[in-house]
Structures are given as structure tokens and as C-alpha cells.
Amino acid sequence: MASIEVGGKSYETDEEGYLVNLAEWNADVANYIAKTESVEMTDQHWEVINFLREYFDEYQIAPAVRVLTKAIGKKLGAEKGNSEYLYGLFPYGPGKQACKIAGLPKPTGCV
């Protein structure tokens, strides 16, 4: 198994760099993963990441892209409630890249 080193502590990840044990996640880990993904974390990024974590806590899965855009739209204004905004933040796709930074498992299937 692969792992990453953040602040002197080792975190287990899968082959693709997704955190294996999501309870271990913290802001430092998120920042570290974001760096490997070439994503510069801003407050806007954190809004998304925090929503993902909350949703996951409730439903044990990341939200559908549509659910995510709607929630962001409600929180930050309708002009941000679209997938373009999210792709702007997470160029590799809000589903996978944001999940990875949020320490959530990767969505599988035909997505």
C-alpha cells in the first residue's frame, strides 16, 4: 500500500492517492493532496470540501454533481451554483478531484 507523509505522520492511501482511512483526514492532509493535484486551496475550495464532508457524514457517499452545485448555489449565490464554477476550482472534475482532497473514497462506476 502507498502512503503519504504529512507533518511527520504517515497516512495510508490507495494506488491513486485517495486516503484509505477517512477518519484520519485533516486540513493539512487536504492541503497536501491538493498540492499533488496542483490545486491552490482558497476559501472557495474549502466551501466545497466542507460541504462534501458534511454530505458524506450523512449519506456515506459523495453528493451527485447536481446536488453539490445546488448546495453551493444556495450558500454562495446562484451565479456559483453551476458545474462550470466547480470545474474552475477543480479542473480534473469536481466529483473525483474534490473527493480526493476531502479524503472521501473515489466515486466508482460510469462517472
Binding site: 449519506y59 457517499i61 453528493p63 451527485a64 466515486p107 466508482t108 462506476g109 462517472v111
Partner: peptide, 23 residues
């Protein structure tokens, strides 16, 4: 995941219902 949860995504019932209500 299909065997365990019912779909390829691993989308549990409550999440599915929430998504459908949103739609």
C-alpha cells in the same frame, strides 16, 4: 458494490432518495 449496496456507485438508499427529491 453492486452486491453490497445495489449499484456500481455505492449509492445507499437514503442518498438516492435525497437525490431524487432534489430532482
Amino acid at each position: 458494490k453492486v452486491h453490497k449496496i445495489g449499484n456500481n456507485l455505492g449509492l445507499p438508499g437514503p442518498a438516492l432518495i435525497d437525490t431524487l427529491e432534489g430532482l
